[in-house]
Design a binder for these strands. Sequence first.
DNA 1: TAGATTGTTAATCGATTAACAATC
DNA 2: TAGATTGTTAATCGATTAACAATC
Lengths: 213, 213
Amino acid sequence: MEKKTISPAVIRRLPRYYRYLGELLDQEVEGISSYELSKRMHSTASQIRQDLNNFDNFGHLGYGYNVKNLRDKIGEILGLDQSRNLIVIGAGHLGQAIANYAQFERMGFTLTGLFDINPDLAGKEVRGIPILMLDDLDRFALEHRVDIAALTIPKSAAQSVARRLTGLGVPAIWNFAHVDLEVGEKTVVENVHLSDSLMELSYNLMSRSRDSK
Amino acid sequence: MEKKTISPAVIRRLPRYYRYLGELLDQEVEGISSYELSKRMHSTASQIRQDLNNFDNFGHLGYGYNVKNLRDKIGEILGLDQSRNLIVIGAGHLGQAIANYAQFERMGFTLTGLFDINPDLAGKEVRGIPILMLDDLDRFALEHRVDIAALTIPKSAAQSVARRLTGLGVPAIWNFAHVDLEVGEKTVVENVHLSDSLMELSYNLMSRSRDSK
DNA sequence: TAGATTGTTAATCGATTAACAATC
DNA sequence: TAGATTGTTAATCGATTAACAATC
């Protein structure tokens, strides 16, 4: 159905294009050349043209790209035109931060469930969604379609919950626990390893002070 | 002082090595070969040897690598042997999640301040650290050394706070707002763009269902 | 010792940058 | 039209994988 496969390096850049094109849209910019966009994004015109040519030919010779068309197309490629049900497992601060992040709804994600093991939280609502006990997960998953489960639980619990989720047929896990989950090939896992990110920051901070000496 | 420069691709992998070596240490594994480690990490022995040879020669012929030595060395390269003061700006759920994450202290990061603009939060404590008002930031920064500021505030406020931080001489920003901050070259910025991460997940979910057809 | 495993060079693969003919 | 800007090919750069002599 789709033509050529798009390289991982390009995929990683697509959300960033999407974000910048959204800003341009807010600023009511209708069209932009690869060169102008590259200046804004601190990228290169060459890379932008290479990237965008992975899908359809959207540019207009002598004019550039239509911001709205291009953004819609990228959104489509990223699957943002689909609607996805998201549950959050772990209703601590991190879980609630994600649950509260209304922005996600704009990208087609709907929070449909929130789970924890702490009985004190049972019934408490976040944006109209009651916190359920983890024991209810199986029943919930049978009654509702779950596309993505965000895992905001300690790493000790993450692997077993992940296994349970794949068993229930949940196709994608957004993993915030500091472990690499071992799941079958068919399950999509996206990791957000905050400690890794902080370590990279730490390294850059080190080499910065080294350079300035 | 340090020999050759280490490539970005290697740097990005170091935190992951650090994590796996920590697990091995917990399991009281003393030594491991590049081949064994590659199986655990779903990587290749060749890449591991290439990566580790960026710093000192740590391997022992016919034996492999000493887990403890190697982990310490990687920690040192990442700067985890230094102690760093961290402040969190934005005491919402995300900010509190980070403030509460005790694990960071093990890597040499100490939470020293927590700021918000909501007067209702003034004086409330998180792990013994009182929430201060953003107005107090300048005075605080003059009185205490701040190495890293985590920005867990809406994107509309992020750029101006970032400018303020750099003005105060804060060398590094851990940015959770969904904008790319425009700061001087000397400031280290590490971005955690959750929406980008979710979009990448969405893409992978799309292509998964495409493949299985 | 003999088997195991490194460090390192060479080969391959992928990603980025440069260049320019085509054309709106 | 003439200037601007694309799509795309070729050149360069960087990262990964393969191979193997050196040696504990």
